[in-house]
Amino acid sequence: MRHIHLEGDGKLEKSFFLMLQGGFYVECPIGTSIKEFLVDSIGIDETYLAEKISTIFLDGKCVDDIGKAVIEEGSTLALSSAMPGLAGAILKRGGPLKVMRDGISYGKEEKFLQKRKGICSIKLFNLLTEDLGPLFLKSGIYIKARDLSGLISTKSCQFLPRDATITVDGKSVDFEVLLDILKEEEDELLFFTFDVKWER
């Protein structure tokens, strides 16, 4: 699996946030609760989790109790901040209107799975992309080459600041070479990391 690493400024990093809404993969501890995963493994502050991550879906089901919902192999975990309107209020975790979506709420029954390393998919929406995106991009995410090329292929090389650097498997390459690699291997999964080396 290829490792693509970029170094640049905060503005460049921000341009990769849109990719995070479509989903990416990370290593995760299977059999742990969402709360344990986000706090202990990812390093998200508990207060932030309580106050800002207001809407959570596990495999498309609205989660109310993040201490009980358990991550399984291949699970998709979607995280969102508070959302507007009636739909936003209904989907909010633990909200007073949760009964209005009881058909799609995560079940109350507790699951016990053997704890082990695995892979799950994460989707970050709205305000959380800016807050949590840097955390995931720094530690690294697995994505399809197609998803990365989909984001940057429409941009010219001016998209990268002159002092940004790209490495593929530890070797420095230029923007066009990166595009060629992504195009050739579009169905492959790759490991992507981004380091902010300076702010403008």
């Binding site: 879906f57 969102s80 507007p84 739909a87 709205n126």
Partner: peptide, 10 residues
């Protein structure tokens, strides 16, 4: 901003 979460909710 609702599109992604309604989609996720099915």
């Amino acid at each position: 901003v609702l599109a992604n979460i309604l989609n996720e909710a099915g």
